[in-house]
Design a protein around this nucleic acid. Structure first.
Length: 562
RNA sequence: UGGGGCGUCGUCAAGUGGUAAGACACAGGGUUUUGAUCCCUGCAUUCAGAGGUUCGAGUCCUCUCGCCCCAGCCA
């Protein structure tokens, strides 16, 4: 009775009510049941968070169970990847479970069904089975094998298991109703012959249970109370219940369906992601532009940002496409709190401070976080030659431009006020260098005479800057909904989703960066060391590679557009 | 033209017959040595549409419209 705290989404309401009614002795057990046939993506994260959070909220348990009943699609590498990804997200699932661990019991359940006269071996070909199934508007017809005796079924099923038959020769079917308006109930196949080696059971089996048979029973065997799945399984629920009603199982879990997530400017189906990878539109499953969790991790997404996002989007049964901006907002929220600030120049423009002594180098103190004292400070160096951002200089600046221009004074963050005295160009008219003067009285950035400078820009000392390569990522697709109008989503790819800058200059402290740490390059965005390129020197020389995780909000960019 | 679902702000989403939360986005303004952060302010007389029941309807009833899913020996 103490569970009626504020109700959340509809699933939480159902669970709360169940607890209040002492259903399942007030227990909550959920599960996240991926098939190990690919890598996890942000859509899976929604399900993972939902299942683990519901269990956590009600002092229950959430199992990680691999739904590995089709050996032709499943691989150990996926199992390993999924396990580590769920861990990375921050969830504790204890020992991973496998549907394949229940193959013996599942087989016994099938035998039970045969003995009850509720399942039969069908010897129709795949084509015939489809033919007999009927259509959406027409009922199906009974298989000619539907009335085989229990004895004959037992014998045939035993021989299927013994490997006497080839694939496709026989199937085991549940005997339900070939005229049901729900096609899933038209004698669904529950076992098929597959002469395939399973990643975990090897060649022990040559018959494998189908999803509908496996899933409900696995749930029941594990004592799952609430089996949460996506909307497309709604039509399967009667079958889920039928099987559990026909068999004697430890419990009868409740299947509840919710809408899977979609996000603007990306795709989330395994099939589409696979095409992107296989056709080399991206550089692998962990490409930082992909919504795969491995890609997002490499991009610099944090587990807590992803969890926050999953919390905030809610759970309902409505088809939705969530604004990518919301994901980015969650990311920035988290990173703003945790990311140490540093300075880096992406497109360097050399600046010589003509009145600064040739041989001098000063050490300045910079804050690692403007609002968080506890994150400490670091030392940065300053001398006569520095780099600033090309975008921070305009030869003919508009009125609201607060940065460098001929004759203008700006503050170099943590350093001095400098004034642009001269612009040096190459023969093509491209600006190659700025000659400035500094005001020695403004060390730290404040003028004793009290004069105000509107602009503060970032910079890097030329002498000890780190040369780096930086990958700038943008949305993968041009269109909010890449698969709109039935066009091939590939045509909607954003050709500029990756821009690599080869000659960036970063402050010296970044030499010790680790890929797990996301830094804010002040005024630019959040960046992290690319984990895939770490330490590789062949293609990249000695230069580290950083990935831009996400930009900062940019009011100036908006102003510029007007 | 069978069955199962879903329609509340640009996008998510609360709402469980008592007079439309919140978040993101957007628009203004303030603070600021990041045009960041932070802080204010504004942003659905209306809930797909039309009828009806009721003192009262996003919530109940009827009809209409729109969208999604299902005919794998995939999950």
């Amino acid at each position: 009775m103490d569970a009626d705290i504020k109700k959340g989404h509809f699933i939480e309401s159902i669970i709360t009510e169940d607890i209040n009614n002492n259903k399942n002795q007030g227990k909550v057990v959920t599960r996240f049941p991926p098939e190990p046939n690919g890598y996890l993506h942000i859509g899976h994260a929604k399900s993972i968070c939902l299942n683990f959070n519901m269990a956590g909220k009600f002092n229950g348990r959430c199992n990680l169970r691999f739904d590995d009943s089709n050996p032709t699609k499943e691989k150990q590498v996926y199992i390993d990847s999924i396990k580590s990804t769920v861990n990375w997200l921050g969830f504790d699932y204890g020992t991973p479970l496998f549907a394949s661990d229940y193959f013996d019991r599942l087989h016994d359940f099938a035998v039970q069904l045969i003995k009850k006269g509720k399942a039969y071996v069908c010897s129709l070909t795949a084509d015939d089975i489809r033919e007999y199934r009927g259509t959406l508007t027409e009922p199906g017809k009974n298989s000619p094998y539907r009335d085989r005796s229990v004895q004959e079924n037992l014998d045939l099923f035993g021989r299927m298991k013994a490997g006497e038959f080839g694939e496709g020769e026989h199937t085991l079917r549940a005997k339900i109703d070939m005229t049901s308006p729900n096609i899933n109930l038209r004698d669904p196949i529950i076992y098929r012959v597959k002469k395939a080696s399973h990643p975990r059971t090897g060649d022990q089996w040559c018959i494998y249970p189908m999803y509908d048979f496996t899933h409900c029973l696995s749930d029941a065997l594990e004592g799952i109370t609430h089996s949460l799945c996506s909307l497309e399984f709604q039509d399967h629920r009667p079958l889920y219940d039928w099987i559990l009603d026909e068999l004697e199982t430890p419990c009868h879990p409740q299947q509840i369906e919710f809408a899977r997530m979609n996000i603007t400017f990306t795709v989330l189906s395994k099939r589409k992601l696979q095409r992107l990878v296989e056709e080399n539109h991206v550089q692998g499953w962990d490409d930082p532009r992909l919504p795969t969790l491995e890609g997002m991790k490499r991009r610099g997404y944090t587990p807590s940002a992803i969890r926050q996002f999953c919390d905030i989007i809610g759970v309902s049964k409505k088809d939705s496409r969530i604004d990518m901006g919301l994901l980015e907002s969650c990311l920035r929220d988290d990173l703003n709190e945790t990311a140490p600030r540093v300075m880096g120049v992406l497109k360097p423009l050399k600046v010589t401070i003509e009145n600064y002594p040739q041989d001098r180098t000063e050490e300045l103190v910079a804050k690692n976080h403007p609002q968080k004292q506890e994150m400490g400070t670091r030392t940065i160096t300053f001398s006569r030659e520095i780099y600033v951002e090309q975008d921070d200089f305009m030869e003919a600046p508009p009125k609201k431009f607060f940065r460098l221009g001929p004759g203008r004074e700006v503050r170099l963050r943590y350093a001095y006020l400098v004034t642009c005295k001269q612009v040096i160009k190459d023969p093509d008219g491209k600006v190659t260098e700025l000659i400035c003067t500094y005001d020695p009285a403004t060390k730290g950035g404040n003028a004793p005479d009290g004069r105000k400078v509107k602009g503060t820009i970032h910079w890097v000392n030329a002498a000890d800057a780190i040369d780096a390569r930086v990958n700038l990522y943008d949305r993968l697709f041009k269109d909010e909904n890449p698969e709109q109008n039935k066009q091939d989503f590939i045509e909607n790819l954003n050709p500029d989703s990756l821009e690599t800058l080869a000659s960036c200059k970063l402050e010296k402290s970044l030499g010790e960066a680790a890929p797990e740490t996301v830094y804010q390059f002040e005024r630019l965005g959040y960046f992290c060391l690319d984990s895939a390129h770490q330490g590789s020197t062949d293609i990249l020389g000695d230069h580290p590679v950083f990935n831009r995780t996400v930009t900062l909000r940019d009011a100036w960019a908006k102003l510029k557009k007007k």
